[in-house]
Simulated assay, not measured.
Amino acid sequence: MLRVAETREGRWTVLHVRGELDLVSSPVVRQRVHDAVAAGDRQVVLDLSEVFFCDSSGVGVLVAARRLMRSCQGRLRLVLPARGAEEGSHVNRVLAALGVRRLFEVYADAASAADDEASPLSA
């Protein structure tokens, strides 16, 4: 089961995603990003630190969210902790394996993702 909670960190909307990001649940994340943009939010953080599974449809939603944010001159950042239960987050490994990790600005936590002075983690 997937859960998405929304918080604010300064000027950033943070969507905390928890659970599995797959064919069944990924439309929920897509809709929440669209809702944020419709509400006028142009700086969105997807906190994926509690996502323990991500399939190709989940990756597709992340790529589509990036495209949407860029089309409205917005910014998208991901939270993908470098270390997790299995030496790195599942989403981070999937994005790297598919060669799309480099497309995203990735941070270790939501606070640094919402900090305009913080540098993204290297791929």
Rank of each mutant, 00 (worst) to 15 (best):
F53S: 08
E50T: 09
S122F: 09
D22N: 14
A38I: 01
H16F: 07
L121G: 06
P27W: 10
A114V: 03
H16N: 13
R42A: 13
F52Y: 13
V94D: 06
L2G: 03
G10K: 04
L95D: 01
V44I: 15
V24H: 13
A85Y: 08
A110F: 03
R102M: 06
E20T: 03
L95E: 00
M1C: 11
V17M: 02
E50M: 10
C54V: 10
R83L: 10
S122P: 07
A111G: 08
G40C: 09
A97I: 05
A85S: 13
A82R: 13
Q43S: 11
E20N: 03
C54E: 04
V33T: 08
V28D: 12
R70T: 13
R30W: 09
N92E: 13
R75Y: 02
V94A: 05
R70C: 06
S119L: 14
V24P: 02
D115Y: 02
L98P: 01
V28L: 15
E105R: 12
G10R: 02
D47N: 14
D116Y: 04
D47F: 07
R66S: 09
G58R: 00
R30D: 15
Q31W: 12
V44C: 02
S57L: 11
E117A: 15
D115V: 01
V51Q: 00
